[in-house]
Design a protein around this nucleic acid. Structure first.
Lengths: 136, 136
DNA sequence: TATTGTTATACTCTATAACTATA
DNA sequence: TATAGTTATAGAGTATAACAATA
């Protein structure tokens, strides 16, 4: 199972594009889009990155216009990171690109295989959630 | 489907360990173990890396004792890269670690979900192969 | 000339340690 | 003192360009 997943994801990652966000960057964007603004410390913890690493990533993303920083009104030490419209566009474009490639591969399979994968998706999603929860 | 795969694999990658080979490094080790010695150029092509990148990766792996280099008797320009016993040990340990973690997650699912995933594995494997073939 | 591999160089990403500002 | 964030610095990983050796 493991080599299967590894092959798939390394392939997806190699889909080149002008604005190819790193996996962590995309994960941060998706999280901000889904859950709203978050502090650097929380992003670092949730994405299993160091706090300085997250500061730097957020810095690069801000420079690229994907997020913006604002002081946390509730805590003078804190910073709230928020996704921008351009950040949301990147999420949309990246997902569209990946989905298109996946669909293309998917179409090379026969009906039986496609049905088996579709039937397993909810279970795989729960497996992924178990993995995520285990981290926290 | 994509976020599911992304979550799973990023999680697996975060399993920390004293000797955590990079994904490409592990892929090279597995290939050498499965198919025998290979030239740098072929490894670069097969793993979608640049030739200098593969030279450097093989250099690091050789330094770590995972592979050895030997002149290609059939071509004075070529170098044959071969996995060592220690390299095979790393494959075994890494897979064991990953499989153990996957099993642990797997056990949190109910019987229906587990069956669905098991049933989809051959299809997922063909999907991964389609991805790999598309590269070549 | 073409191919194999390496070296030179640079850039991205990430980490640990040291520091600043606020609680 | 503890926490939030940043800066300083270093290392892994990978790329393109230039080079050396062999076909």
């Amino acid at each position: 199972m493991l080599p299967v997943l590894g092959q798939l994801v390394r392939f997806l990652r190699q889909i080149d594009s002008p604005d190819n966000p790193s996996p962590v960057s995309l994960a941060v964007l998706r999280r901000l889009d889904r859950d709203g603004p978050a502090r650097v410390t929380d992003l670092a913890r949730l994405e299993r990155a160091s706090q300085p690493g997250m500061t730097q990533l957020v810095g690069r993303m801000e420079k690229a216009g994907l997020v913006r920083r604002a002081p946390d009104p509730a805590d003078g030490r804190g910073v709230l990171v928020e996704v921008t419209g351009e950040g949301r566009d990147v999420i949309t474009r990246t997902h569209a690109r990946y989905e298109a490639t996946l669909d293309e591969l998917f179409d090379t399979l026969d009906e039986t295989d496609r049905a088996a994968i579709v039937a397993a998706l909810p279970a795989l999603e729960r497996l992924a959630r178990a993995a995520t929860d285990r981290q926290a």
